[in-house]
Amino acid sequence: MPCLMPRGLGMCWSRPLMNTVKCNMFSSWRSSSDMCGGRWIVNAEDVKFHARDAFTPLSCKLTAEFRCIIWVLRCLRDLHVGACEIWSESVAAVSAIHDSSKWPRFQVYLNQIHHLLTEVHGFCFVVSQPQVNSVARDIAQSITRDGRFRSYLSIGGPAWLQSWIREERQGSFGD
């Protein structure tokens, strides 16, 4: 069973546990076109990796969320990321990962997620509040809002991304 950290931990920005990195992720889905995409950022003190991807059209927001989680887990596995807290705003997705028996409609996705979790160790899911996930959310929404379908994976991050994350940590970014 995957680790699920208590909801309260995602209320404000906090450092990841020692020897752990934090991965903020967000899945954006647009109902009018079924277009979706995702964004994730791995950071400890500074951005270690960040990526954006557009996905084939999917029929609902939760399916898009699962597709994004699968993508994130595959990327983190392939990058040999060790212990990691994955922060997502999707209460439903994190709940389904924690107790998949209550979500039979999504078993295909949940089985893939659970299989990937056996290939990585020390991964926990945290339900985050929007104000502590704003960077990942804003960039993911640019995929469906602005049609930015070009995918990328980057090591480190440009200065504008580093400062954006520092502002998010200080609580001065967002709403």
Rank of each mutant, 00 (worst) to 15 (best):
M1H: 11
M1N: 02
P2S: 01
P2A: 01
C3L: 11
L4Y: 14
M5L: 13
M5A: 09
P6W: 02
G8W: 04
L9M: 09
G10H: 08
G10F: 06
G10N: 09
M11P: 03
M11A: 14
C12M: 13
W13A: 07
S14D: 11
R15M: 15
P16T: 04
L17H: 05
L17K: 05
T20F: 07
C23K: 12
C23I: 12
C23W: 00
M25V: 06
S27Q: 07
W29C: 01
W29A: 01
R30F: 09
S32G: 05
S33M: 10
D34H: 13
D34M: 13
D34N: 13
G37I: 02
G38I: 08
R39A: 00
R39Y: 05
R39H: 06
W40C: 02
I41M: 05
V42G: 03
V42L: 08
N43A: 10
E45T: 12
E45V: 07
V47L: 09
K48V: 01
K48N: 05
F49R: 14
H50I: 02
H50V: 01
A51R: 15
D53G: 10
D53N: 12
T56A: 14
P57V: 07
P57I: 02
L58S: 06
E65M: 03
E65S: 12
F66I: 02
C68V: 10
I69K: 05
R74A: 00
C75D: 15
L76S: 02
D78A: 06
D78R: 14
L79W: 15
H80F: 04
V81T: 11
A83Y: 08
C84E: 03
C84Y: 04
C84G: 03
E85P: 06
I86K: 10
S88C: 12
E89L: 09
V91R: 13
A92E: 10
A92L: 06
A93H: 00
V94A: 01
A96W: 02
I97S: 00
H98M: 08
S101A: 11
S101Y: 11
K102A: 14
K102I: 09
W103N: 01
F106S: 09
Q107Y: 06
V108P: 00
Q112W: 01
I113D: 03
H114W: 05
H114N: 05
H115I: 04
L117K: 00
T118R: 10
E119I: 01
G122P: 03
F123D: 06
F123S: 00
C124Q: 04
C124M: 04
F125N: 03
V126A: 01
S128Y: 10
Q129A: 15
P130F: 06
Q131L: 11
V132F: 02
V132A: 07
S134V: 08
S134F: 09
R137E: 14
R137L: 08
D138M: 12
I139E: 14
I139P: 00
I139D: 12
A140S: 07
Q141R: 15
S142G: 15
T144R: 03
D146I: 01
D146T: 12
G147I: 03
R150V: 08
S151L: 04
S151G: 03
S154W: 11
S154F: 06
S154G: 06
S154T: 13
G156C: 12
G156F: 11
P158G: 02
Q162R: 15
Q162W: 08
S163W: 13
E168V: 04
E168F: 02
Q170P: 07
G174S: 14
G174P: 10
G174E: 14
